[in-house]
Write a protein that binds this DNA or RNA. Sequence first.
DNA 1: CTGAAAGCGCTTACAG
DNA 2: CTGAAAGCGCTTACAG
Lengths: 338, 338
Amino acid sequence: MSNSTIVEVAKLAGVSVTTVSRCLNSPEKVGKKTLARVRRVIEEINFSPNMLAQNFRRGKTNIILVVVHEIGSWLFAEILEGIRAVLGTRYSIILTESRPEVNDNNFIEMLVTKQVEGVILLCSTLPFSKKLIEKNKSKSLPIVIGLEPISADLDQFPSVHIDNYQAAYDATQYLITSGHRDIVFVSGPKHSFVTKDRELGFCAAIQSSELSLDEANILHSDLTSNGGVNAAMEIFARSVMPTAVFCANDDMALGVLGLASRRGIRVPEELSIMGFDDTRYAAIANPPLSTVFQPARDIGIGAAKRLLRAIDSPEDSAVKAEILPHRLVIRSSTGPRG
Amino acid sequence: MSNSTIVEVAKLAGVSVTTVSRCLNSPEKVGKKTLARVRRVIEEINFSPNMLAQNFRRGKTNIILVVVHEIGSWLFAEILEGIRAVLGTRYSIILTESRPEVNDNNFIEMLVTKQVEGVILLCSTLPFSKKLIEKNKSKSLPIVIGLEPISADLDQFPSVHIDNYQAAYDATQYLITSGHRDIVFVSGPKHSFVTKDRELGFCAAIQSSELSLDEANILHSDLTSNGGVNAAMEIFARSVMPTAVFCANDDMALGVLGLASRRGIRVPEELSIMGFDDTRYAAIANPPLSTVFQPARDIGIGAAKRLLRAIDSPEDSAVKAEILPHRLVIRSSTGPRG
DNA sequence: CTGAAAGCGCTTACAG
DNA sequence: CTGAAAGCGCTTACAG
């Protein structure tokens, strides 16, 4: 199939290859009758242009790179779906994971080698951020950031995310309003920028109430269910237990919830647990998890649209962050202080 | 960067472009001194070959297509990781989802248009299976199937998966041995080939015991937590409840578990619940979910290796299925009949 | 609206 | 071990 080339089509249609090429790429510049004839031939011999040759000639790869922290998570899958929805037909998407276990220091090599036309960053911690900026400078590689606020050196790029600070503030305030006085926040790794913002929001909410902020009430752990379990072990070992735990993401919260139930701690009577993300497992947890919803799909769509804009008109560099709305989702894992 | 070309390198090194090309692609055919000189120049001007030109010239895209049912699931993420681990450096991976909501009937177009060099199928229900076979015939497009047994017309392709029949048989037998007499199996959609095998295994185990197989004890639902909730609603509405539910995957089981707890049904005292896949949420469910482990990562690795073999030596068509081991993982959601 | 011709950056027989 | 030359399948000024 498709060993046929543009010259064959030209021959059969009795036109030049130039004309055939135009029929393919800018049909409006071709006479109606000619166009029809060429199209018929294309149809007949089932011709489709060799994309390899096109890419080469045009110097375009039609590839964009998406860097996620971890592909397995529901959140990223959702964002990706959004990205695909807008980029799907035009670009192929190459995925790279940024977590250290994945040996993708060939990341930069990818940029050179695969010659990607744009990058969407969905992760905060980049070992290679300087390199990236350098690339962006020298080759004007379009970059947009999604989901996470990012290190200061990357804040020159457009981004799409919720107000993590405010969201955490809201969630914390909800817990305070429910009567909780002793709330611990389980944050992510110290270098994580998303969770940093959420941590700040938590602190601010605590301080704007009459409560005092206890440093011991901020824990750092992995953003996984296992990380949640570990944090929970530390919390449950305390002589005086908090009455509420607010986790920086749902997976952690699910981990805390899991250990709580294994330890016979009643949720929410003895302990309220709040997550973040509104992952699909939050709703079916036992008890169903209260959490903060963020519009993952829209984040993907937004990021992709911005990237497209950046690619199509590099000069118009409206570098501003696009803030999407978040929403508290209160289910049964939280309640008034017991 | 890399506006430099092979001819520049040739000029600077005082050799022909042919030689530079050889240094890149078959250095063993080049004299040591020449090679060293050329390499120094390449280093100096930071040259890297234009992959677009290479691909075009070689007629290779270095792209393989992976079709998954749904990218968000832990299982697929794990398999993908396996695939990447073996294909990563050599190929870019394009992902397509096969679930109907995703409008990817451009799938076949992808094959033509993107000119992929191989396909890994991780889903059973293909609207386009005939087309695919046709392609495979006409262009000798290498195809391998992973995770799922597939429709009869596709069984000509190599595949990598567990023995789903036996795994379900084992799980069912475990439930029977635990004293359960009234077990319902929540299967996937009727056209799903994986769950069909599991269903058959379930039936066989029931029949090989002294129990009688009741058609009403086989339900069909979506392979999602929501599908599990729906199935559970039907089950819980029965005048006489089963003492065990075996779900075709973990997400469903988690859904059943969720509804059970909301309805105040004690698990496993009143109801044992068993899943399939050993998803990462199984371990932290409340109570932790008994399930069947399948080596997702190894499935990915196996499938990728086979694809590589199929690409590299098309003649050697050892079309046999590779069966990987499964394992029962008994946690707390199952127990002796109450 | 159409065509002849140059050229994109490589690879690969072929000849030596 | 090395090089001159053809060519992969397109696109794109340029000219008409």
